[in-house]
Amino acid sequence: MKKIFYPIFLLLLSLLAWTACDKIDEPLTLIGEEDFPENIDDTLFYVDSTLVSRKQVLLEDFTGHKCVNCPEWGIFAHELAAELDHKLIIISIHAGYYATPDASGDYTADLRTDAGTQLYEDFQIFANPTGLINRDEYNGSILVYPDYWEEAINTQLEKDPVATLSVKNKYFPNLNTVVIDLNAVALSDIEGKYKVAVYLTEDHVISPQKNNNPEVGPTPDWLDFEHMGLLRGAINTTYGAYISENGEMVTGEIYSREYIYKLNDDWVAANCNVIVYLYNEDTWEVVQVAELGIKTE
């Protein structure tokens, strides 16, 4: 009798597996989220999006409009970004002594921001220009001087991307407001807690800049200097927010965030860029960065 029961028992087990059943623990999954102005007249919008899956590098260039050495290196950085097919994303942060506006004269413009000043102080920047390149150490220091920017940037670019970032900007012209949807996905197991910071920069801002290098422009005052990547503000605070509930990321999982930001009416929306970067809270290292302009028509 046992001879027959064992095969039947095995048969039953195998058939149990064969007659499958999908247990659904989460019947409803969030697949999309959109924000619209309640006023129907304001619902006109323009949308643009980008997906960054290659390795990109963030250069936070601490500068000031009265810093005479800064234009040269700022221009160098942007030329390098073009050479690198814009794998290099630049935020030009006016902070510190050289950024203070004068009461009168050519340098009355205040290009500083609260976020920039906080970064300047927290990272103990003491000279301009100074860069943070992915906020990672180069030659034992997190502060990288311009002579080493290219080497440090190339070092970062040699790393494999560990996360992707996708950004969608929806600009409502009647409200001069941008709704930013971002998704982050870890491509491999990454340890630690991750935050995402969202900043706004503006290109083509014409404002005087001191300069001591005649090869790049007028000296000593470059009155119609075209500032690029000028930090205008931190959209979700200086240090951003956890990408997930506790900051941890599971490979392949999509983490989404949405932010709404009303632009200052003095800024030119078409020249503005949203910059999103993902960084490790413990090491400060920026593991991915994306930049997306605002489409206004």
Binding site: T29, I31, G32, E33, D35, P37, I260, K262
Partner: peptide
């Protein structure tokens, strides 16, 4: 101090089982 009223619209997909078993 500018106030904007917004509608947040979330879209959910139902996860339907391909296999339904019984015993």
């Amino acid at each position: 101090g500018d106030t904007i009223n917004w509608i947040n619209q979330k879209t959910y997909e139902m996860n339907l089982p391909h296999n339904v078993g019984s015993w």
